[in-house]
């Protein structure tokens, strides 16, 4: 009889029933899976994604990886490759700096705090979304067709990319700044522009500079593809070697490019840490 006391004790501390998951979680998960299946399926609006097929094809001869196995390091010293790297660097630098200058006012006006009134806010916001909706490669192909091949269309494409990225990231921090300085600027009779200059700008400057630096990296990476449509930079070298099937050289340039981006990434992160 004494042994039977245990079950009532445990039942008093019965595990509480788990609450059912919220409807949003259930429908969200179903939606996620449904979208994935619809896009993965092999039908008119799907891409026909079959893991089994991919695994089967992995065994196929891969001339590109074969090229990567015997890298042709001497390529990195060739004048065209060096010129490509230099041009990529130039394009990224010009585009980032010009884009940064244009993006600053766009970022300020794209925020409730920074816009003088609602109309400007809505207009600028939509303008920024529009610029952001077009990929850099499409800007590049348009400008190549309009003004001819070379670094110029590449700079323009990266310029729009920079404006989009910097304006977006910066405007997100404008609304989160400390409102104190804004109030004191207004209280001391500052105009809207003076307020932006003295109360908003100093607060967002570190973030803005950091985003600009980060955009420089994005531009370096972005320039890898622009050459495929004739918009200059190292991408032109990639495309050239790819079209001719010189995969040993292609692999060497890719490794070189990777090292450059990696170093810039490290330096930029160090500088950004110092900024913030």
């Amino acid at each position: 009889m004494t042994g039977a006391t245990a079950p009532p004790t445990t039942s008093a501390f019965r595990r509480p029933t788990k609450p059912p998951p919220p409807a949003f979680a259930i429908w969200g998960t179903i939606g996620f899976i449904a979208v994935t299946l619809l896009f993965a399926w092999d039908w008119r609006y799907g891409i026909g994604f079959s893991p089994a097929e991919i695994i089967e094809n992995l065994g196929r001869r891969n001339p590109i990886l074969e090229g990567a196995r015997n890298l042709d390091w001497s390529t990195l010293a060739s004048p065209t490759v060096i010129a490509g790297f230099v041009e990529t660097f130039q394009m990224a630098a010009i585009a980032t700096i010009l884009g940064g200058i244009v993006a600053l006012p766009l970022a300020l006006l794209n925020s409730v705090t920074g816009a003088p009134n609602r109309t400007v806010y809505v207009l600028v916001k939509n303008f920024n979304s529009f610029i952001r909706a077009i990929p850099d490669l499409i800007y590049a192909v348009f400008f190549v067709a309009a003004i001819g091949r070379g670094a110029m269309p590449g700079i323009l494409a990266l310029f729009f990319l920079s404006v989009a990225v910097i304006a977006k990231l910066t405007s997100d921090i404008v609304d989160g700044i400390d409102p104190g300085p804004i109030e004191s600027a207004r209280a001391s009779g500052a105009t809207h522009t003076q307020m932006l200059r003295t109360a908003v700008l100093p607060q967002i400057l570190p973030g803005y500079t950091s985003f600009a630096l980060y955009t420089f990296e994005i531009n370096l990476r972005g320039s890898a593809v622009l050459g495929f449509v004739g918009a200059g930079g190292i991408g032109q070298v990639f495309n050239n070697y790819y079209q001719r099937g010189w995969f040993d050289r292609l692999a060497a340039v890719v490794v070189g490019f990777f090292v450059v981006v990696f170093i810039v990434d490290r330096v930029s992160i160090a500088v950004r840490k110092r900024l913030l």
Binding site: Y121, D172, I173, G176, L276
Partner: peptide, 21 residues
């Protein structure tokens, strides 16, 4: 605040942001 506030950068990959964000 404004009908469609996107929350973060659509243009790129988010680096560390300063301040309250």
């Amino acid at each position: 605040i404004g009908a469609d506030e996107d929350d973060d950068d659509g243009g790129g990959r988010t680096p560390k942001v300063p301040g309250p964000a």
